[in-house]
Simulated assay, not measured.
Amino acid sequence: MFISPMLLETAHSPFSHSNYIFEPKIDGHRLIFSQQGGKIRLYTRHETDCTRQYPELLDQFDDDIILDGEVACTDPETGSIDFEMVMNRFQAKKSDKIQRLITTQPVTFVVFDILQYKGKDLRKIPLIQRKEILSGIQMPNKHFGVIPFVEAAGEALFSQMEAQELEGMVGKKQNSIYESRRSASWQKVINWTYAEVFITGYRKNEFGWLTSVITETGKLRATGIIELGVPPKAKQALYGVSKSIVIGEDKNFVYLEPKIRAKVKTRNWTRNGMLRSPAFVEFNLSS
């Protein structure tokens, strides 16, 4: 049984509040775990069935249950949570590859909420009571874990997330009910990484600015596309200036000399040196 998940709004900065609990934000993908009549189904937030991708999560609980959480992978070399690894797991379709990845890239289901248990719908009771119920349930194997949380001290927790270079934190009202929509009762604070890039082109048919950096050898290297956070005035400014620095085009893009610099924020850098979900912050006008 699928339940559409409760989604987060974005807080502008870390905060503390006595009416909130605060959790580390896990850099994986959302997962709804459903065990009904002894049958387990796993779903993404968009109701995509991903049961076969995660065999290590198919051990049963003592009764029917629906859980909400994040499925993640930990890099065995660094011990850090690795988003690209869990995407590799999610995209694996062939049974033999999935079986190999269970050993080399095992997942953990980090549970942060319980929505149903033993036939009872728990979504209307306060979050802090759902947490108490969840804490008393035996997890079926080592691939399940319950997310820790602290009360009130959000800023202190966020400082820890920064120090450990983790994705950020989530603040949730202690008395919040579970709503299948985006709600201000749950707020995320992202631990952004900042970078300076050159704007080296733009899409023709839809919005997107090409970004690049200069490598240590002096060469230009592409780093992705900015699609987020660009206000209308910034778009107008770039397109006005860019006319004099066009160096070519193809079917999809117009290419520019690396003259315009911008500050961006990003979740992190991928292993192949690309910005992950970069968002525009401002132009860098210094020489």
Rank of each mutant, 00 (worst) to 15 (best):
S185T: 09
W186F: 03
Q160E: 09
A156M: 08
E179G: 02
A152P: 00
K142G: 15
V146H: 03
G208R: 08
W192T: 11
K172D: 00
K188Y: 02
K120M: 15
A152H: 13
K142H: 15
N141R: 14
H143I: 11
E151A: 12
Y194D: 05
F144N: 13
Y202M: 15
M139T: 09
S183K: 05
K172P: 04
I199T: 04
K142R: 15
Q174T: 10
E179I: 00
G171P: 02
N205L: 14
V170Y: 03
E196H: 07
G145I: 11
T193P: 08
F207M: 05
P126L: 06
E162C: 11
K120V: 14
D121I: 07
E155P: 00
T200M: 01
Y178T: 00
W192Q: 13
N191Q: 07
V170G: 02
Q138N: 15
I147R: 11
R181V: 01
L166M: 15
K173F: 10
Y117A: 13
E151W: 07
Y178I: 07
E151D: 10
E165L: 07
F198L: 05
F158M: 01
A156Q: 01
E206W: 13
K173L: 12
M161H: 08
I137G: 08
Y178P: 00
Y178V: 04
G168N: 07
Y194N: 12
V150T: 10
E151I: 11
E155M: 00
I133F: 09
K120C: 08
A153W: 04
Q138G: 14
K142W: 06
M169H: 01
G208Q: 01
E155T: 11
Q174G: 14
I147G: 10
G119K: 15
F158Y: 12
V170M: 00
W209H: 08
R203E: 11
Q187D: 05
R123Y: 02
A195M: 04
Q160V: 13
G154F: 00
Y194V: 10
K142Y: 14
S159N: 12
Q160L: 15
